[in-house]
Amino acid sequence: GATAVSEWTEYKTADGKTYYYNNRTEESTWEKPQELK
């Protein structure tokens, strides 16, 4: 299949934890999204 550009962006909180934000759905998660595995 075609490689889609991930909708997920990786961010870090002030205390250094990583989370992921989906630009399309406006969803955020602590877990690494399936698309990034």
Rank of each mutant, 00 (worst) to 15 (best):
6 S>L: 10
27 E>W: 02
6 S>V: 09
35 E>M: 06
11 Y>L: 15
12 K>W: 06
5 V>Q: 14
23 N>T: 15
5 V>D: 11
24 R>E: 08
2 A>Q: 14
30 W>V: 06
22 N>E: 01
22 N>H: 03
3 T>R: 07
20 Y>P: 01
29 T>Q: 10
20 Y>R: 00
7 E>T: 06
21 Y>V: 10
12 K>N: 05
34 Q>G: 10
13 T>S: 08
35 E>T: 06
15 D>V: 02
9 T>H: 10
33 P>Q: 03
13 T>A: 08
13 T>L: 05
22 N>F: 01
14 A>M: 08
4 A>M: 14
2 A>D: 12
10 E>R: 03
17 K>G: 05
35 E>R: 03
37 K>V: 15
13 T>N: 08
24 R>H: 09
33 P>F: 03
9 T>M: 11
2 A>G: 13
17 K>E: 08
4 A>T: 14
8 W>T: 00
20 Y>L: 00
10 E>A: 09
30 W>Q: 07
28 S>D: 03
25 T>D: 01
18 T>N: 04
16 G>P: 00
27 E>R: 04
12 K>Q: 10
28 S>R: 15
2 A>F: 13
2 A>E: 13
15 D>L: 04
16 G>L: 01
18 T>L: 10
9 T>R: 11
12 K>E: 05
23 N>G: 06
2 A>M: 12
24 R>Q: 09
29 T>D: 03
13 T>W: 02
21 Y>S: 02
1 G>P: 13
19 Y>D: 01
21 Y>D: 00
2 A>H: 14
22 N>M: 01
11 Y>W: 07
15 D>Q: 05
18 T>Q: 04
4 A>N: 13
34 Q>T: 12
6 S>F: 08
37 K>Q: 15
29 T>S: 11
1 G>L: 14
22 N>A: 00
15 D>Y: 06
5 V>N: 11
23 N>P: 08
5 V>M: 13
20 Y>I: 00
18 T>I: 14
17 K>Y: 09
10 E>D: 02
24 R>S: 09
28 S>H: 14
7 E>R: 03
23 N>H: 15
19 Y>R: 05
5 V>L: 14
20 Y>K: 00
12 K>V: 13
9 T>N: 08
29 T>W: 05
16 G>E: 02
28 S>F: 15
6 S>I: 09
37 K>C: 15
9 T>Y: 08
17 K>C: 15
34 Q>Y: 11
1 G>N: 13
31 E>Q: 09
30 W>A: 07
23 N>Q: 12
32 K>P: 07
18 T>G: 01
31 E>K: 06
13 T>I: 02
28 S>E: 10
12 K>A: 05
21 Y>F: 10
20 Y>V: 00
18 T>V: 13
12 K>G: 02
5 V>K: 10
24 R>L: 14
16 G>R: 00
19 Y>W: 14
35 E>Q: 09
25 T>N: 03
21 Y>H: 06
13 T>P: 00
31 E>H: 07
11 Y>A: 05
36 L>T: 05
21 Y>M: 04
31 E>W: 06
32 K>S: 04
7 E>C: 07
36 L>S: 05
28 S>I: 15
2 A>Y: 11
31 E>T: 10
34 Q>N: 14
6 S>A: 11
27 E>D: 04
11 Y>G: 04
9 T>G: 06
1 G>H: 13
33 P>L: 02
20 Y>F: 07
7 E>H: 07
35 E>G: 10
4 A>W: 12
27 E>T: 06
7 E>I: 08
14 A>H: 10
15 D>M: 05
30 W>G: 04
10 E>W: 05
6 S>M: 09
24 R>P: 02
23 N>R: 11
8 W>I: 02
30 W>R: 05
19 Y>K: 04
35 E>Y: 06
11 Y>K: 14
6 S>E: 10
2 A>S: 14
28 S>T: 15
5 V>S: 12
29 T>A: 07
25 T>K: 03
32 K>F: 06
10 E>G: 01
10 E>M: 09
37 K>W: 15
19 Y>N: 02
14 A>V: 11
19 Y>Q: 03
35 E>A: 11
17 K>R: 15
17 K>V: 10
15 D>R: 03
3 T>P: 13
16 G>W: 01
22 N>Q: 01
14 A>R: 07
1 G>R: 09
27 E>L: 06
14 A>G: 06
17 K>H: 08
6 S>K: 08
31 E>R: 04
15 D>T: 08
8 W>Y: 02
1 G>M: 14
7 E>K: 04
22 N>Y: 02
36 L>R: 03
15 D>E: 09
21 Y>A: 01
9 T>K: 11
3 T>L: 12
18 T>S: 10
21 Y>G: 02
18 T>H: 06
27 E>N: 04
9 T>S: 11
33 P>K: 01
4 A>V: 13
22 N>I: 01
11 Y>F: 13
35 E>W: 06
8 W>D: 00
28 S>K: 15
27 E>H: 04
32 K>E: 08
2 A>K: 07
29 T>H: 05
25 T>A: 02
2 A>T: 12
13 T>E: 02
33 P>N: 02
12 K>L: 10
35 E>K: 04
17 K>I: 09
4 A>G: 11
33 P>G: 02
6 S>Y: 09
7 E>F: 09
10 E>N: 02
19 Y>T: 02
17 K>P: 01
17 K>L: 11
7 E>S: 05
8 W>K: 00
17 K>T: 09
32 K>Y: 06
12 K>S: 06
8 W>P: 00
32 K>V: 09
27 E>F: 04
4 A>Y: 06
29 T>P: 01
13 T>D: 12
8 W>A: 00
30 W>P: 06
4 A>Q: 14
1 G>Y: 11
32 K>M: 12
3 T>S: 14
5 V>A: 14
28 S>M: 15
29 T>M: 08
3 T>W: 09
20 Y>M: 00
23 N>F: 11
1 G>E: 12
35 E>L: 04
18 T>R: 04
15 D>I: 03
35 E>H: 07
14 A>D: 08
28 S>P: 03
31 E>S: 06
33 P>Y: 03
37 K>T: 14
15 D>C: 15
22 N>G: 00
7 E>D: 12
20 Y>A: 00
18 T>C: 10
17 K>W: 05
31 E>P: 02
19 Y>M: 08
15 D>H: 04
2 A>V: 13
4 A>S: 13
36 L>H: 09
8 W>E: 00
16 G>T: 00
5 V>E: 12
13 T>C: 13
15 D>W: 08
12 K>D: 02
28 S>V: 15
27 E>K: 07
25 T>E: 02
2 A>P: 13
11 Y>I: 12
4 A>P: 14
6 S>W: 09
1 G>K: 07
35 E>F: 07
8 W>F: 02
12 K>I: 13
29 T>I: 08
29 T>F: 06
6 S>G: 11
16 G>N: 04
9 T>W: 09
16 G>S: 01
23 N>M: 12
30 W>H: 07
36 L>I: 09
25 T>V: 01
32 K>L: 09
17 K>Q: 11
9 T>Q: 12
25 T>G: 01
23 N>K: 13
22 N>R: 01
24 R>W: 11
24 R>A: 09
13 T>F: 03
35 E>C: 15
20 Y>Q: 00
35 E>S: 10
34 Q>L: 13
16 G>I: 00
14 A>L: 10
37 K>D: 15
12 K>Y: 08
36 L>E: 07
23 N>E: 11
1 G>A: 15
21 Y>Q: 03
